[in-house]
């Protein structure tokens, strides 16, 4: 196994995939913690699917589909952030509209493009093994921007995410920060489409965070563990997909879910054992039964 891993490292596509998984884990670990804490998972789903419109247009006009996805994602993200507040359109309804509009636009343009679109499945379900050096470079830039932004503005990010209305009473630039953060959310989603695809990318933004949330209820610590779990899950998924020759996006998600279950179950067992010790080796219902006797 170690030998074959060393062998794998000689392939350019494999090192690219490893780098992509690492960078996506960092970006998704940080941004996903923000998404889960603020409960904007549905908004993120809307942005993800809206971006497919840009992928289709990229196909049709022959430019990089990821660039099209980025434009669609950022516009729909800012649209959700601003339009629903200004016009009184319900936010979740607006998300539903943009979600389906993006998918519809995408499929029309892909359909109209001449010839067969071989990597369409890659955009939908992820294909980490086809990530190029250029993709890795873009992901690295985004990861650095996100890390710097969260270090410099940790306090305002935390306070505004926790209690917007209160932050407004302190004359904080709440709207500006929300716009910057939702843009970073959109860009993180687009960059991670290469790893997990439009349909599966939400997994990297929610599963590691939910796992981390079992261990901690502190924002900073949750970011740390989210990155760790995202990294562990995506590397495991990548290797499994390579060994068993199954789609990488799906195997990454199964690794993330198994990791979640492992942490959940061991956490539950641990608290159970601790409780048993406190109760002289007996569980509450057993003690109750003793008392009745």
């Amino acid at each position: 196994m170690i030998e074959s891993f060393a062998e794998l490292m000689q392939y350019r596509f494999f090192t690219n995939a490893l780098l992509a998984a690492t960078l996506a884990s960092i970006a998704c670990g940080i941004i996903g913690t923000y998404i889960v804490s603020r409960r904007i998972v549905f908004i993120s789903g809307g942005i993800t699917h809206a971006s497919f419109g840009g992928i289709g247009i990229g196909y049709y006009y022959g430019f990089n589909p990821i660039l099209g996805a980025a434009v669609f994602a950022v516009i729909s993200a800012l649209g959700i952030e601003m339009i629903s507040k200004k016009t009184g359109v319900r936010e979740d309804s607006l998300i539903g509209i943009l979600w389906s509009l993006g998918m519809a636009t995408g499929i029309i343009f892909v359909f109209m493009s001449p010839g067969y679109a071989p990597d369409l499945m890659g955009y939908l379900f992820g294909s980490i093994l086809t990530v190029s050096g250029n993709d890795v470079f873009q992901m690295a830039i985004l990861a650095v921007v996100i890390i710097l932004f969260f270090i410099l503005f940790y306090k305002p990010i935390l306070f505004i995410a926790f209690d917007q209305e209160y932050a407004k009473t302190h004359n904080y630039p709440v709207q500006l920060m929300n716009c910057i953060l939702i843009t970073l959310v959109a860009l993180t989603i687009v960059m991670s489409i290469r790893v997990a695809g439009v349909i599966l990318v939400l997994s990297l933004l929610t599963i590691p965070q939910t796992t981390a949330n079992i261990l901690t209820r502190d924002f900073r610590t949750m970011i740390f563990w989210s990155v760790v779990f995202a990294f562990a899950g995506s590397i495991t998924g990548l290797l499994v997909s390579f060994q068993l020759d199954i789609p990488s996006g799906a195997s990454i998600i199964f690794s993330l879910i198994l990791l979640f279950l492992a942490v959940r179950i061991s956490g539950w067992t641990l608290s159970r054992v601790r409780l048993m010790k406190q109760m002289n080796g007996k569980l509450p219902h057993q003690r109750l039964a003793d008392k009745k006797r």
Partner: peptide
Amino acid sequence: FPISVTDVVLSGLMSREGFFSLY
């Protein structure tokens, strides 16, 4: 929301000036 008691209390000091620094 994953935030500690101390952080909530400290958020009472937020101002435009103290935007960058840590506590």
